[in-house]
């Protein structure tokens, strides 16, 4: 039964899911994948190029790059979830309410959207991080403070269409409570594009999170995060390219994984984008 369901899923979705599962394994049990301790110094093997002993080479302290890249998966997958789940929840609730009830709140929301899109997303996030101070926690706050608007805008436009549907009117005639109509009838029907957007947004969150990590505004060393690892290797790029190149592969791979899953889910749920 299970096998039949999986067999019917589109190949890109399966490929994306396989990538994400592999990364999840790295995040949950790095010891099973990584050949070495990611923090262990090995002065007998400094700046080793990729080879049999060290598949991805070693850095200036003899740390194994493969093990460090694997260990970093935990933080980057955490970024994918924690940087998007707040915007998803807040945006869904706000979009549902302003879309369904309209009125002044909706008008105010409309102006807010116009305003937020005039700020370059990254610049606004960086400005908020500047106020709060660099670090992973503050980065989540900054991304959430801006990001929810995009979820709410999407949710609102869906709810706006559903609000006028006959079945919603029928619910009202039947005397259903507002909470019941919103949560059981409007939300499930409006959720599909938001879920698809969430998938894509997780890929973007990893790109944004690693970029901020690279700039020194996100995850702070010695935390192993792909962007931080690349920043570690950037000064040695000409002598030891492998220090920065391999963690970058991981980011690209994660991005492709989330995109493939997002596209696959969009096809399954029949969401036009």
């Amino acid at each position: 039964m299970m096998y039949r369901v999986i067999g019917r899923l589109p190949a890109p979705l399966l490929a994306g899911a396989a990538i994400l599962l592999a990364l999840l394994l790295c995040a949950a049990a790095p010891g099973t994948v990584a050949p070495y301790d990611p923090l262990a110094f090995d002065y007998a093997a400094l700046l080793q190029p990729p080879g049999r002993a060290h598949l991805f080479g070693t850095d200036q302290f003899g740390r194994d790059i493969l093990s460090r890249t694997v260990a970093a998966a935990a933080i980057d997958l955490q970024i994918a979830v924690l940087a998007t789940v707040g915007p998803l929840l807040i945006g869904t609730v706000v979009g549902l309410l302003v879309g369904y009830y309209g009125g002044i709140a909706d008008a105010v929301f409309g102006r807010l959207v116009d305003l937020v899109v005039t700020f370059p997303f990254l610049v606004l996030v960086i400005a908020i991080v500047a106020v709060l101070g660099p670090g992973l926690g503050n980065m989540y706050v900054a991304i959430t403070a801006v990001g929810w608007v995009f979820y709410a805008r999407l949710m609102r436009s869906e709810v706006l269409v559903l609000r006028g549907q006959d079945y919603v009117s029928a619910c009202k005639v039947l005397g259903y409570g507002q909470a019941r109509i919103l949560l059981r009838h409007v939300l499930p029907n409006a959720a599909r594009p938001v879920i698809v957007y969430w998938m894509t947004d997780m890929a973007l969150a990893i790109l944004l999170g690693s970029s901020l990590g690279y700039l020194g505004l996100g995850a702070q060393p010695p935390a192993a995060e792909w962007g931080v690892l690349i920043a570690d290797g950037k000064n040695l790029f000409t002598q030891a390219w492998w220090i920065a190149v391999f963690p970058g592969f991981a980011i690209v791979l994660a991005g492709i994984g989330f995109s493939l899953v997002g596209d696959g889910v969009a096809d399954l749920l029949d969401v036009k984008r």
């Binding site: 890929a203 790109l207 690693s210 970029s211 690279y214 690349i230 980011i251 994660a254």
Partner: peptide, 14 residues
């Protein structure tokens, strides 16, 4: 797809 999944700082460094 690869282009969209590659962070700018990484492409720049390469």
């Amino acid at each position: 797809q690869v282009g969209l999944s590659s962070p700018i700082f990484y492409v720049g460094l390469l």
